[in-house]
Design a protein around this nucleic acid. Structure first.
Lengths: 195, 195
DNA sequence: CGCGACGTTGATTTGCCTCAACGATTGTGG
DNA sequence: CCACAATCGTTGAGGCAAATCAACGTCGCG
């Protein structure tokens, strides 16, 4: 049976995974179908799971008191998503995590993951790698937010993640890149003129 | 002997550490004194170590091609600092890490850390925790950069890390918070008037 | 003492936002 | 299957937060 092969492949890119390890992981994976516009995390509730995206597109975002939305993260196939801050501290979330398309995710509950890690260092190692890469990624984003103009941020993001740019509404993209939808629209237009 | 007690205490806040574990860690810690203005990481060279700050203040920063400096991170006592992206991928750094005061750091070499983790899951676990917390921290910073005005960012940072604000030159603080030194100066002045 | 690094202040400019109006597309209930 | 609403993107006019530029004061240090 080739259930769960895509997440196994992801893990194998970081550590060696035996058949027994696969079994132990499978035991805690919960497959879940979600419909477009459905929330898998909501402010006020503890984010109990990390979700691996098997199919679909998601975003995590924050709603500021003035009503403005700020997108923290997108996730498409082969990415993880959650309100990570809520997840690791098991405190109430402040983010929404919303499905942007009908999709399929594999969820792992916090306590189950921690037990798995405690029992088997392979998983401890894997999640260390993931967290380290995520941190490095976040630092690069901070740097790009500090040093680049709105147009540069869009150009770079579009080069790195064209797939996300295609699949996601522009106003969400704008709220990820730190600009208004109107300005992103004008930016794209003038970038097109150049090329 | 109470050598290395502060870093042990840091670790104990996350995992249980036996006397043998302490010994294994001590074996890879390299004590190093640094003088103000000294660089412990430079662009082009692989960042071979993670550095735990025993005494002193440091910052990691990037120099944009237009000459502008952007501070990614500060570190004072009981924090780690490095060019983390360079460290985990063992590729050439793009950041400077500079001592802002005379100081003392405990350095851990990449390969030694990885071996330690492979041999003892306690350390795997500890570094997972650290990476997870770092990631959550970075995400909060991204959020605050997206949603807050310059004055709000300063006010919050000053409340959370008054110690860093006191010990660090203002132009570096400005380059961390994403504004010009001139604007930070004006901002502080007007915040003082209010209170 | 004198020089260089740092902070301050004011005048001016600009990148991006706000607000408003208008198409285009999608989806939904009758 | 169409009408209508809702959602999303575009465009333009005007405004504001923060940057830039320039000049000056101050302090620590060689």
């Amino acid at each position: 049976m080739n259930e769960n092969q895509t997440i196994f492949a992801n893990i194998r890119r970081h550590v060696d995974l035996s058949a027994e390890d696969e079994g132990a992981l499978s035991a805690i994976l919960m497959k879940r179908r979600v419909k477009k516009r459905q929330f898998i995390v909501q402010p006020g509730f503890v984010c109990a799971h990390q979700s691996y995206v098997e199919k679909g597109a998601f975003r995590a975002y924050f709603i500021h008191k003035n009503g403005a939305e700020h997108t923290i993260q997108f996730a498409i196939e082969d990415w993880f998503i959650s309100d990570f801050n809520s997840y690791i501290s098991q405190t109430p979330a402040s983010l929404f995590v919303e499905a942007l398309e009908d999709g399929l995710i594999m969820q792992m509950e916090y306590n189950a993951v921690e037990m798995l890690c405690a029992q088997n260092p392979i998983f401890e190692r894997y999640f260390r790698m993931i967290a380290q890469k995520s941190f490095a990624f976040a630092q690069r984003r901070i740097l790009s937010n500090l040093g680049q103009t709105a147009a540069e941020r869009f150009r770079d993001f579009n080069k790195l993640y064209p797939e996300i740019v295609r699949r996601v509404p522009q106003y969400m993209l704008a709220s990820y890149l730190g600009m208004t939808p109107e300005f992103l629209s004008k930016t794209r237009k003038s970038l097109n003129r150049e090329s």
